[in-house]
Design a protein around this nucleic acid. Structure first.
Lengths: 341, 341
DNA sequence: GTGAAAGCGCTAACAT
DNA sequence: ATGTTAGCGCTTTCAC
């Protein structure tokens, strides 16, 4: 590598190769049919010698193709997303793309700001795990011809390609498993539901299961607060269902963590005093007490498929074709926390 | 937002405002001293009405400032890095920057490829958690004037600004704590050490502690393999130190997880049969058995400070000033897994 | 206080 | 098979 090799331009290469920069450009874009073998070989060698790399900014400015996509996620510290992002990154590489990422912390204002800011860099499309509070804005973007893939969120009516998991079915299956294991009353522990579709769908599956299997009213506990309030919720749930065998279902990893901490503080035995089950399968769920029954989501594959779908859209002439929902199956990992006694 | 508002250029704004695009450009760059208040107000209003946003690609091409930085990490699914990246992202936003990230999975070839690929996008600098196998290459980049911040790695001689934690000291402190808790022999469980400086430093602190406190030879176990081989390592360690009270120290979250899984399989009691302590404090370490004693690293702050430092470098005329090491303190979170019996 | 014009490093339409 | 030329949307020098 030479000093300043990042300052070498197409003109330098052209001059040394004794051809016009058009020919170099053709070479760079693989249009070899428009040049002699000698030109081709000479150019190849010179590029290699000079360590020339084309300036993407200039290419993008001209062609409006930045080879960059934008990723908007709720919270990258959540393992579900960090694995998803790894899938996205690996897949991007295969397509010759890079990605710019923004963490929006559930803030819809931030979501809009970041989308505009990434568009300033001319990202060619987005993979968005939306707050679900900017639907009009997203539709606007879509009308402008910017491909958008929704991940882990379903917005109705269906306006964007959507990558998600079989949330309803797997939640319902988990309920069935709890029934089969002898649990009689199920508490549903979730963060604030807001508009977020996954939470709504999961709670719907729970509610349906309550009616259809457990003959109980839904008992939904919102645990956005601290450890104490989570512990209180659990105590309330236990009090309200004294004689029956009980289990809690958690809607995401954070809810799971909070419930486990509270159960720990309360000194409850799993699964004798309380069964536990829910989203999501994390590296450590097998190690807590008797092992926690948990739902595994294929987040890496989800990330890959998001990119596949986005690339299809980007390379598609006509962009207003009907959006599709792609649903990947989850897996219920059964462990001691929901054992039949 | 209007249709096609991303197609509006500085020329459109200039035409409507009835001024030259130079004036618009001055407005965009805050050079208000070169225009009348009327011009200024008019431009402001028109930009707002049109929802005009300048094309970053064009700005960057001209100015060679992309407002983009590059992040290279080993593995984004490791909570240490995902939290670090959150810190980086939040801090970037304050500076008006975005970042392009690459996950290199400990692969030095990928590291080089990604660095070049991000440079094609004219990132203005890098925050790199290097494989430590591309030092010459990184030095080359640095000579070309590309600011590089090393994070979580120390390369000697010191050629880059470096953000790290007080690894040696905190590891040594952890050893002291084990001694104070009545442990007599310590096993060191690590992934392959390779060139990675953190692992070297941690193992050095361990080795020194062995000599200075425990009067033992270092007992280092490499656990890159599967669960079975980790379990074997633990059995060997126990066999080799039959009569003494024993503890293991793990060098990162993955090693910790593997050890805990193996301990679980072997049915060992913590801390009676085996004490456990090490990197790193994760959301769940308090929930396993009696709670796991662990080292907390301030990764979010580390991420923020990386960006602070990088911005200093980017905005610095003279870039060859002496590199600095910034060391953030860790915390040892003491729990039941290293209890005095 | 304002504008004309050159140019950043490419691509592509149109020649030849 | 190859070159000429005109931009892409900005910034910046220089002139007035």
């Amino acid at each position: 590598l030479k000093e300043n090799s990042n300052k070498i331009t197409i003109n330098d290469v052209a001059k040394i190769a004794n051809v016009s920069k058009t020919t170099i450009s053709r070479y760079l874009n693989g249009k070899f049919e428009y040049m002699s073998t000698e030109s081709r070989d000479k150019i190849q060698q010179i590029i290699k010698e000079l360590n020339y790399r084309p300036n993407n900014l200039a290419r993008s400015l001209k062609s409006n193709k930045s080879k960059l996509i934008g990723i908007i996620v709720e919270d990258i510290t959540n393992p579900f997303y960090s694995i998803l992002i790894k899938g996205i990154g690996d897949s991007c590489k295969e397509y010759g793309y890079n990605f710019v990422m923004a963490n929006i912390d559930n803030d819809s204002v931030l979501e809009r700001e970041y989308i505009l800011s990434l568009l300033d860099h001319r990202v060619e499309g987005f993979i968005i795990q939306s707050t679900c509070e900017n639907n009009d804005f997203l539709i606007e973007m879509s009308h402008r011809g910017i491909p958008i893939i929704m991940v882990d969120r379903v917005i109705k009516p269906l306006l964007f390609d959507t990558l998600t998991t079989n949330d309803y079915q797997i939640t319902y299956n988990a309920m069935q498993h709890l029934l089969d294991s002898g649990f009689q009353k199920i508490g549903f522990f979730t963060q604030k539901i807001r508009n977020i579709s996954t939470r709504i769908i999961r709670s719907q599956a729970y509610t349906d299961a309550c009616k259809q299997m457990f003959n109980q009213e839904p008992q939904i506990y919102i645990i956005d607060g601290d450890l104490d309030s989570t512990a209180d919720s659990i105590k309330n749930f236990l009090e309200a269902n004294k004689k029956q065998r009980k289990a809690v279902f958690t809607t995401n990893g954070l809810a799971m963590l909070n419930v486990l901490k509270a159960v720990n503080v309360l000194g409850l035995r799993i699964p004798q005093d309380l069964g536990i089950c829910g989203y999501e399968e994390l590296s450590w769920t097998g190690l807590i007490g008797p092992g926690i029954t948990a739902i595994f989501q294929p987040s890496y594959e989800l990330g890959q498929k998001c990119v596949d779908r986005l690339m299809k859209r980007i390379n598609q002439r006509k962009r207003n074709t009907k959006p599709r929902v792609i649903e990947l199956p989850c897996q219920l990992i059964i462990r001691g926390s929901t054992r039949l006694l």
